[in-house]
């Protein structure tokens, strides 16, 4: 059943309610806190668990990765490509470590799978590029986060 709300006599004159509304908008304009931020100067604080731009953690300038291939195996988007090689001291290391970031879904499973604590997702979220990008090893070994 359609029930019409009763409007009181003062409401039916509109004027008082319009004045009230004008007061509210003016109050919002002058005193309310602005909800937007000025982006390049101000930034929001993201959680430490935020999964953003990848990097490979290094200790003493050498990447932790041993090219064990666990991360390309677990990766659901199949965006990691590793080619393994051997160092003079017989240690295995990745000759190539590429992440096709357009395929990456930032699930963080590579980070969970990694036994050497090598691949990491930092909390950098500005990853805009003007063309298709594959992150090379040189780019990934820059230490970008504190994780």
């Amino acid at each position: 059943m359609l029930v019409k709300a009763k409007t009181s006599l003062t409401q039916r004159f509109y004027i008082f309610d319009i004045v009230k509304g004008l007061y509210i908008t003016m109050k919002n304009m002058l005193f309310a806190k602005k909800v937007t931020i000025q982006f390049p100067e101000e930034r929001r604080n993201y959680s430490n668990r935020y999964r953003g731009l990848h990097y490979i953690k290094a200790t003493n300038g050498v990447e932790n990765c041993t090219a064990c291939m666990l991360c390309p195996t677990v990766c659901p988007a199949e965006c990691i490509h590793i080619e393994a090689g051997e160092r003079p001291d017989k240690e295995k290391y990745p000759v190539k470590f590429e992440i096709d970031v357009l395929r990456c879904c930032f699930c963080g499973m590579c980070e969970e799978a990694c036994p050497k604590d090598a691949i990491k997702l930092s909390n950098i979220y500005e990853m805009t590029v003007t063309q298709r990008t594959i992150y090379e090893k040189d780019f990934l070994v820059e230490q970008r986060g504190s994780k």
Binding site: T25, N28, M29, A32, K33, K34, V35, T36, Q38
Partner: peptide, 10 residues
């Protein structure tokens, strides 16, 4: 600017 300020934007 006026509409933005009224809507709590800049």
């Amino acid at each position: 600017r006026g509409s933005a300020l009224i809507q709590n934007r800049l």
